[in-house]
Structure formats: structure tokens, C-alpha cells
């Protein structure tokens, strides 16, 4: 349950499985446990996503450790729960289909990483 908006969150996306939660034999994600790791992972994910999203002119923000807010340059926004819901929102706000095999995206990423070296 999201305590901010009352939405009942039923799904945990497979990518939210966190191998850094060592010590738990069964790797369960339990309410209230590993908050520090969880928060760190969310912020890291946001940082990575924003590096990639320069290509789509989009920006992602973590919203109170509960949801993500995706915005385009015109200020339109979408609220998403996880990576599963992120990609359709990217397509909607940027009018481009996110595809890691897209030569244009790969060219941009390579140029950015070369410029940073």
C-alpha cells in the first residue's frame, strides 16, 4: 500500500529484486526492511536513467521513495511505479519507442561517454 496516495501496490517488478540485501536467507522484500539499501538503489536507478534519458529529453525523479515522476521538456508528467511501467510512459511523453538497440541512442551514449573521458 502506498501511504501517500492509498494505491494498493501488488506488483514487485523483477528488477526491484535487490541482491544487496544479504543476510536474508530467502531474499524476501519485506515492509520496512533494508530501507537504506532500497533508497540507495532507487537513487542510483534514477541517476542511470537520467543519463540515458537525455536522448529522449526526459527527466525522472524519485518521489518520496514511493514512486517515480517522469517529465518531458514541456512539463508534461507521468507517475510510474517501476521499470515495467516506465517504458510505456517514455514512449508516451517522447513519442519515441525506447529501444537499447537503436543506433541513434547508442551513438548519443557513446559520444557522451567519450566527452566525459
Amino acid at each position: 500500500m502506498c501511504i501517500l496516495c492509498g494505491e494498493f501496490v501488488m506488483d514487485v517488478h523483477w528488477s526491484d529484486f535487490s541482491p544487496s540485501y544479504t543476510g536474508d536467507k530467502d531474499m524476501e522484500v519485506k515492509v520496512g526492511s533494508h530501507q537504506r539499501d532500497r533508497k540507495r538503489n532507487r537513487l542510483e536507478k534514477v541517476r542511470l536513467v537520467n543519463d540515458i534519458f537525455k536522448h529522449y529529453h526526459l527527466k525522472l525523479e524519485d518521489w518520496n521513495g514511493s514512486k517515480y515522476v517522469l517529465r518531458n521538456a514541456k512539463g508534461k508528467s507521468e507517475i510510474v511505479n517501476d521499470l515495467g511501467a516506465l517504458w510505456p510512459a517514455v514512449e508516451k511523453l517522447s513519442n519515441m519507442k525506447p529501444n537499447p538497440l537503436n543506433p541513434e541512442l547508442l551513438k548519443n551514449l557513446r559520444e557522451t561517454s567519450e566527452a566525459n573521458v
Binding site: S15, F17, L48, W87, P98, N99, L101
Partner: peptide, 14 residues
Amino acid sequence: WSAFGLWLSMLLYA
């Protein structure tokens, strides 16, 4: 893992 999850979920979406 976070970056890999990002890449794979994007690939599977596309």
C-alpha cells in the same frame, strides 16, 4: 544489477 535491469527491461519492452 540496477543498470542491467534497466537495459534488459528496455530491451524487452522494445
